[in-house]
Amino acid sequence: MLLEIKDLVAGYGNLDILHGVNMEVDKNEVVCIIGPNGGGKSTVLKTIYGLLKPRAGSILFRGDDIGGVESHRLLRRGISFVPQDKNVFPSLTVKENLAMGAYTRPDMEEEGTENVLLRFPSLKEKMNIRAGYLSGGERKMLAIGMTLMLEPDMILMDEPSMGLSPRFVEIVFNKIDEISSEGTSILIVEQNAYKALRTSDRGYVLDLGINRFQDESVKLLNNPDIRKLYLGG
């Protein structure tokens, strides 16, 4: 297993949000987490990425416990994170944003930028434009591009489709497919549950800080209970 989460408890202040979450992501897998608003989906990703300390349970990455390990160390181990929103530096140019994606490994900046531009050619002519002036779709490409700079083994993505037009949602999910097919594992959190389940291999339904269901994505899609409770019938 690449990533194994066992009985994870985490939260904010003196409030627990996750009450014993269990999840796994294998090499080359795309796994999605769906569930109602406030269910703790983002909290799971933030805890994996070291932005919150686990209060109990463990997070193993390639067998090592990474619970509470700081983000910059996780980057070096091959994990990157695209947060739900505010995921670029608006007053920096696209080029500078990409450079910041490789901040911990300046030696990878040049090659990384080339690779990102191959994947997102539309960013090429925007390189000297401030990220704050990009459209929502372009911004999302940039945010994903930044995490690709270090060629991670695992990407955590929080709601990649949020705020995008249907055309861009399609593009983003195609890119996710593409990235995973080249050997990167992806754990994605999504509101757009249909889309996420169609793109992923397996899925978890997180509700009130517990994973209620877990299965292959196709099976979740066809499960009448899931459809009724989480996919709106």
Binding site: H72, L75, P83, K86, V88, F89, P90, S91, L92, E96
Partner: peptide, 19 residues
């Protein structure tokens, strides 16, 4: 550049590993 980035978005600066 990291300084400007941090001024822009402190959380994101932490996420990309800026000290």
């Amino acid at each position: 550049t990291a300084l400007r980035a941090t001024s822009d978005n402190r959380d994101m600066a932490q996420i990309v590993g800026i000290d």
